[in-house]
Simulated scan of single mutants.
Amino acid sequence: MLKYHTPVMLNECIDALSIKSDGVYVDVTFGGGGHSNEILKRLGTGGRLLAFDQDEDAKQNIPNDDRLTFIDQNFRFLKNYCRLYGVMPVDGILADLGVSSHQFDQPERGFSIRFDADLDMRMDQSASLTAREVINSYSEDQLHKIFGIYGEIQNAKSLAKTIVTSRLNKTIGTVDEFKEVIKKHIPRGKENKYLAQVFQALRIEVNQELEALQEFLLQTAEVLRPGGRLVIMSYHSLEDRLVKNFIAKGKFRGEVEKDFYGNEIKPFESVTRKAKTASEEEIKENSRARSAKLRVAVKL
C-alpha cells in the first residue's frame, strides 16, 4: 500500500486531526489509503470515516473495514455526500492535495515529464478534457493565461504562441512531441523545473484543481462541527495561498469581514501561526515532502 504512495507528514496530519475514538472523519484524498488507515487505527467501533477519491486506481487500496465508506467522487461534492450518508456535522476533515506518487509513476497517465505517453493528465479517467485537448484546441490567449497563472512561467506568452504555431502543421499528441515543440523556451540548466511548471499548469487546468479546491473549502465550514479540525497539505503556492486566505478570512481575497463591534466574522481559527513543513530526515527519504505545507484550523 505504501508503494502506491508514501504519505507526507503522516504523523503530523493525524495528530492535527485530534481524533476521538467515536468521532466522524473525512479523508477527501484517499489515494493509497495511508492517512485513512492511520485514522481507522485510532477510531473505536463507534467511529466512522468517509474517504473520497476520483481516481479509479485508488479503489484497489480500500481496506475491508465496516467503519469506512468510500466515495468515488471529487471532493468538491463534500457536503452532498456527507449529507447523503447522514454524517453531518463531522469532527475532522483531511486533504492531501496534488498528485499521488502512483499517478506520477504510471507512464500512461501522462503526468510525468520522465516518460513518453499520451498527453492525458486526468485524475478522473472518466472525465472528457485531457492535456492533449488543452494544447491543441485552446486559443493563444487561453494558453498564455494558463501557463502564466497556473505555472507562474515568465515566458508564457511566447510559449503559447509557439504551441499554437506548431499545431497548425501537426497535432501535438505525446509528452515527447510536446517537449520537442517547446524546447527553445526551456532555460538551460533549469530544464526540470521549467517543465514541471508547464506540466503543473496543464494538470491544474485539466482537473479544474483550483476551482474544486475553492468549492471544497467553502463547504468545510458547513460540514465541520464547532471545534472540528480542518487539516490541509498543499504542494504549490497557488493552493497554499487559497488555503491560507480561507483559514484567515473565510474567503479567498479581500479583507476579513467584521461585525458592528469590530469582531472578525470568519468560520475558522488557525491552530498554527505558520504552515508546518517536513523535517530534513523526511525530505531525504521522500523528496516530494520538500514542497509540502501543512495548515491546520479549528472551526469556531
Rank of each mutant, 00 (worst) to 15 (best):
I247D: 01
L143K: 02
L300G: 02
T220V: 04
S270V: 06
F147D: 11
V223E: 13
Y85C: 00
D15G: 11
V175F: 03
L78A: 02
D141R: 04
G228P: 14
P7M: 09
P187K: 04
F70P: 05
T29M: 07
L195W: 08
P107C: 03
K244I: 03
K276H: 11
I62R: 12
K157C: 11
A131R: 13
G33I: 06
K249Y: 01
N286R: 10
K190G: 09
F199K: 13
K258G: 00
I39Q: 05
M1S: 07
D240C: 11
N80T: 00
S128F: 09
K3M: 03
F75W: 14
E191H: 06
E211G: 11
D124L: 09
A292Y: 08
V206N: 14
D57N: 02
I71H: 02
F70S: 06
E140N: 05
I182Y: 08
E152M: 15
R290P: 14
R48G: 03
Y150P: 07
S139K: 06
S237G: 08
S158I: 15
I153E: 04
S158P: 02
V175K: 05
L68V: 07
I186A: 01
P89R: 01
L50Y: 08
N11P: 12
L159R: 13
K299F: 13
I182V: 09
G34A: 07
E269R: 04
G31D: 06
P107S: 01
K170A: 12
I153A: 10
L40E: 08
D65H: 00
T174S: 02
Q214W: 12
I93H: 11
T272N: 13
Y194P: 10
R273E: 12
N80R: 02
E38G: 10
K251D: 09
E12Q: 15
D105K: 02
M121K: 09
V231A: 13
A278E: 00
F77W: 14
K41V: 12
E215C: 15
Q103E: 04
C13S: 04
K284D: 14
K251M: 12
T29H: 09
S279M: 15
D55H: 05
V134G: 11
I146A: 00
K20L: 13
L50N: 03
E239T: 01
R288F: 08
Y85H: 07
V134W: 09
L294T: 01
K258E: 07
T130V: 14
K41Q: 12
R167V: 04
L143Y: 10
H144K: 11
S237T: 01
A292W: 10
R203F: 14
Q103L: 01
D96Y: 01
Y81V: 00
G34K: 07
H185R: 10
I172F: 11
R109W: 03
R109H: 04
D118G: 08
N61H: 11
R48P: 06
